[in-house]
Design a protein around this nucleic acid. Structure first.
Lengths: 139, 139
DNA sequence: GCCTATCGTAAGCGTCAGCATATGATTGCG
DNA sequence: CGCAATCATATGCTGACGCTTACGATAGGC
């Protein structure tokens, strides 16, 4: 029973901090904000949805996400078409260009991430990512 | 080569979010702020130091940490004594009471944390914590 | 057909973080 | 001695976030 360890959050937070610091330059290079990237990711993984649902999915505020969507739309990375079935709602979808950018950015980000894991043994590195994926999938 | 996975940050961030949500009630129950707990932890692990160094150690702003120190001092959880060798500096130390609170809080927090990990197989749970500790130690 | 709920949008609120700057006490170098 | 550096502290700025309220358009139950 190893009670003598730092809290999970105390260990994870600096890690996330580092990761974000690595991500920012990549995002900036592609003119995408963190929220923007978050939106692209969500839309690429699970296409259509309503804005409120999208906001909740990425843990953002319904009203604060609008500016982000405006930018993305103006940049041609997403489309916002009125739902013919319910004209209150806007169907959100990622454009081919948006998909392309999202995947490029992801590739670059994941390359950066390796830096953070370099101190780990290769086996541990794989295990860590695997367990993390499980944790993430089970939310 | 499993390129098809979410970014580390995308998986870690919600996790940290959840963890913090679990921590807040515990901290509130003991009248300690997040920063305060962070300070107590740092001081308990590595006793004396100067305020600027402490601030940097916990990733806080040098000036924004002062209010936290004031509160902790007033609550009798830390001591701020002028360094006799350099009267500009204040030697920071945790009091027995502060140490007691810190350890109580940590115990309760770590109990909460288990909830987040319940979806993992027991073996994975241990492995995850172990790797995380390695990552944390190698910073 | 009405009333309530939902959706996107806009605006305002208080909070908090990071950043910069200023000041007063003190130190240490030259 | 005197000057630059260091430390704790105070303060103000800016930007982000979460939360709340309001509003117009629209749907859907009754």
């Amino acid at each position: 029973m190893a009670t003598e360890r730092p809290d999970l959050a105390a260990m994870l937070y600096p890690l996330v901090r580092d990761l974000i610091a690595l991500e920012l330059p990549v995002l900036a290079a592609h003119n995408v904000s963190m929220w923007g990237y978050s939106v692209l990711t969500a839309l690429d993984d699970t296409p259509v949805r309503t804005q409120a649902a999208l906001a909740e999915a990425i843990g953002a505020d319904k009203s604060r996400i609008i500016g982000t969507l405006d930018e993305l739309q103006q940049a041609g990375l997403i489309e916002r078409t009125p739902d013919p079935a319910d004209r209150r709602a806007r169907l959100l979808s990622i454009t081919p260009q948006g998909r392309k950018i999202r995947r490029t950015v992801r590739k670059e980000i994941q390359a950066q991430e390796e830096q953070v894991l370099t101190t780990l043994a290769p086996a541990d590195r794989k295990t860590f990512v695997r367990i993390l994926q499980e944790l993430h999938a089970s939310r």
